[in-house]
Design a protein around this nucleic acid. Structure first.
Lengths: 193, 193
DNA sequence: AAGCATACGGAACAGTGTTCCGGTTAGCAA
DNA sequence: TTGCTAACCGGAACACTGTTCCGTATGCTT
């Protein structure tokens, strides 16, 4: 009975699975070479597919970026509780976690810039980062707050946004290094005056 | 003798002077409405001129942006020495001056973002800000350094870049306010630990 | 008034994102 | 194996933006 139900194990056709995988590999390669703003056609060419195939699998560019970096975002998010347990203090844990976040951002051409972009196409990227990482940051920040190590009243979203902003352009301007500025921001967070 | 030497007082034709003025007014208007990334055609339409006229007067977009905001950048730069003289301490003067800078940036849609852009078209904009404002910032920073109020080894360019970065998106994200983060950065600058 | 350098307008070109549809192919059934 | 159908693919086509170029119009000087 019923119509065709062409399905592989996960419900998609085999060629679709191949295309998606090829696209992810291609995107990762092109992002390294040209940044996350690389032309859609470049990614399609690298993957050996048409541009239509990209839009079918990843309706917005953010979806593609999210998929490419999902594992690393996940790893960063999951590292939070561990740092809180192992570090000498909640504030230290927060510092170390933000170090991880900064490491992630500055090694991806233009990712930090895309993150803050008001471009609607990147809204989903922004949303994913916020949903996954802000709660982790909030946990660390709360712990540091309770231990009295940081000034109160700082919002986790704003802090992450500030750190992310400081990382913008760190990969394309030799005169600018984001880490000292992030260090200043965190030092200011600790100061009670 | 010799060839034509058509000159008004300043060496340009009257219609060229009019066009340039109309373009500056139009650009200022459109920048408020659509940000500094507004389409060239919009600015041309607002000014009632053709796009060619824009490129003739302002070869790069940065030239136009610089021209539109020149007065305000100048005012900010010139305020530096005065603040140093009137404030209770060099560090206070630095804080107040950076307040001026932040005020300027957050009230211009997308200006902070354009400032950090690696886009070649904005290189001249970046250069102008750096040339005009970094020396002023360096003067204030040096004074604060000599008075022992700030941690040593901070570069004026990097500080300005950091503050500029923190202002990115402050005009388009209701959840983000750049000022507290700039406050944190400056607090970190004062902390000696 | 005449002539010419200057300035103007907008068509034309190039690069990019996005949509859409005719053709192809994978998977299932007979 | 063969045939059918839904899913999938490729790339042409469209829309929008930056940029260039040149025939035309304008204003200055003589």
């Amino acid at each position: 009975m019923g119509v065709q139900a062409p399905r592989t194990a996960d419900g998609r056709r085999a060629d679709a699975v191949r295309s998606r995988s090829a696209l992810l590999d291609a995107a990762a390669t092109v992002f390294v070479r040209s940044g996350v703003d690389a032309p859609v056609r470049d990614i399609a060419a690298q993957a050996g597919v048409g541009v239509g195939t990209i839009y079918r699998h990843f309706p917005t560019r953010a979806d593609l970026v999210v998929a490419v970096y999902r594992h690393q975002v996940e790893a960063c998010a999951e590292a939070g509780p561990g740092l809180l347990a192992s570090a000498s203090s909640p504030y230290t844990a927060l510092m170390e976690w933000i170090d991880l976040f900064v490491d992630f951002l500055v090694t991806k051409h233009g990712l930090a810039a895309a993150l803050r972009s008001d471009d609607a196409g990147f809204a989903a990227l922004h949303a994913h980062f916020v949903e996954r990482l802000v709660p982790v940051c909030a946990g660390l920040l709360d712990a540091a707050d309770r231990s009295g190590e940081v000034r109160p009243g700082i919002d986790a979203y704003q802090l992450m946004r500030g750190v992310g902003n400081l990382c913008i352009g760190a990969d394309s301007d030799a005169r600018y290094d984001a880490r000292p500025m992030v260090g200043l921001l965190l030092a200011g967070l600790r100061c009670q005056d």
